[in-house]
């Protein structure tokens, strides 16, 4: 079996704010192999970004890793220093952010900002780096790359800026590309173009991708595996087919059901499930989804549900599985 590219085990991460400890990640575990495309879905504040950023050591003060291990590409992330992180960021793992309008520095040219990352991680001369930057702009489908290099971010449209962000991210051919809602801030036609570009690049370059999104349509078309997050837990993890056709967790079921069924052409966006998200400052003792779950049982309020493996690739954190298994066990006797 191939060496895992990324293996996260029981990661716990908290933000120590003035109001108290915000438990952003609670025992998050998952792994990826080279070339995998993983989708992370979940509502706002569920910890999607924090999970991804922690791989790069970008959850700075007041965020602190308080437990678990993260192994990425031979590194033990939990033991790394800031200096070691710097060598890795933008090189072995890079990231595209949600808002391309604000993610580029307004006072430097596009060329300058692409060349910066190339020169940080390679020994290329300025000239070679510019040649590479031009190549990258061509790769991400920008016309007139020569001219673009000299332009400033404000002279480009949102879609073009996101292409530049992708060019920066891919400049050093990273093993892993994290895309944090890369299309949320763009309008629909541009969204489709950017996603298409990402799929194309993935086929061409073979890097792994973590795709963070609210949009189930995006994960369905791009990802092989999906992690569903709720209140800092991965409440369900499985292949795309498993998640869509045999959802295990009550929250996942809610998500799938909230996809508008008619006009399958239209954009599939999550309709929020009834109730409010959990307060991570004072998380409940039991299942975090209990207050909103229609099948909530007594045990759910008391104790965190254990992980139930539904197949080799599929697990979920819900007491209902335990109950079912116990019943099935009873029948078999």
């Amino acid at each position: 079996m191939s060496e895992k590219l990324l293996e996260i085990q029981d990661e716990r991460l908290s933000f120590f704010t003035q109001a108290g400890e915000v438990k952003a990640l609670n025992n998050v575990s998952f792994s990826m192999e080279q070339g995998d495309v993983l989708g992370i879905v979940g509502e706002s504040g569920s910890g999607k970004s924090v999970t991804a950023y922690s791989i790069m050591g970008l959850t700075a003060y007041p965020g602190k890793l308080i437990g678990g291990t993260i192994h990425f590409n031979g590194h033990e992330i939990e033991k790394m220093t800031e200096k070691e992180f710097r060598k890795m960021r933008g090189n072995e793992v890079s990231i595209i952010f949600q808002d391309p309008m604000t993610s580029l520095n307004p006072v430097y040219t596009i060329g300058n900002q692409i060349v910066e990352v190339i020169r940080l991680h390679t020994n290329k001369t300025k000239k070679e780096a510019y040649a590479r930057a031009k190549e990258l702009l061509e790769l991400v489908g920008m016309n007139e790359p020569e001219k673009r290099l000299k332009q400033y971010p404000h002279e480009l449209s949102g879609g073009m800026r996101q292409r530049v962000m992708i060019a920066i991210a891919l400049a050093c051919e990273p093993k892993l590309l994290i895309a944090d809602e890369p299309t949320t801030a763009l309008d629909v036609t541009i969204q489709a173009q950017i996603l298409e570009l990402m799929q194309e690049l993935r086929a061409k370059l073979g890097m792994s991708i973590i795709m963070i999104t609210h949009d189930l349509g995006v994960v369905a078309s791009m990802c092989e595996k999906i992690a569903v997050m709720y209140a800092g837990h991965i409440v369900e993890y499985g292949t795309t087919d498993e998640i869509f056709y045999q959802p295990g967790h009550e929250y996942t079921k809610g998500l799938i059901n909230s996809i508008p069924k008619l006009n399958a052409q239209g954009k599939e966006r999550l309709i929020p499930i009834e109730g409010t998200p959990v307060d991570l400052l004072n998380p409940p003792a039991g299942c975090p989804f209990a207050p909103r779950c229609t099948n909530c049982m007594k045990v759910c309020l008391r104790e965190m549900p254990p992980r139930t493996d539904l197949s080799d690739t599929h697990y979920s954190l819900c007491w209902l599985h335990q109950k079912q298994q116990a019943e099935q066990g009873g029948k078999a006797e």
Binding site: L58, R89, G90, I95, T102, S103, N105, V117, L120
Partner: peptide, 12 residues
């Protein structure tokens, strides 16, 4: 600002 986060993510 977001571009500061980008700079950090580039390894600057």
């Amino acid at each position: 600002q977001d571009y500061m986060r980008t700079a950090r993510a580039k390894g600057v």
